[in-house]
Amino acid sequence: MDRKIKVVIAKLGLDIHWRGVYLVAQYLKEAGMDVVYLGNKFPAEIVEAAIEEDADVVGLSSLCGNHLALGPMVVDMLKEKGLNNVKVFLGGVIPLDHAKRLEGIYGIHRVYLPETPMQTIVDEISESVRDAA
């Protein structure tokens, strides 16, 4: 299915580091995706936006330690609302063992640590949507 991918992307909670997530958003846009940029939002608002925008992918950014508290909440609430098809990606400053837990038991599709090339993120998001279609 050759259609545009729609990504809802947000900074989790109060986090103040806007540049990384903005950069990712720009790269996704350059890759031809429609990127709905939410700014700083909490899980309930992020999920509501994912519903209204009919998102294929939710991207989260966390650089300040709230990933374990808020990341899994997004996954759970999406499921609760019937959005089982939506994949959640999370990027940021995250200890390795946390990343493993998030990708494992917490159901985050992919966790990106610092120094991940932007192209990897773009490619993996595209693939995940193509695989789901």
Binding site: L12, G13, L14, D15, F42, C64, G65, N66, L68, L70
Partner: peptide, 23 residues
């Protein structure tokens, strides 16, 4: 300071969730 403090929210503010005492 943690983010809620930097941004001027109390630790028990809903906005502070997940960030109290982090960083």
């Amino acid at each position: 300071f943690d983010l809620p403090t930097i941004r001027g929210y109390n630790s028990d503010d809903p906005e502070a969730e997940g960030n109290v005492g982090q960083c």
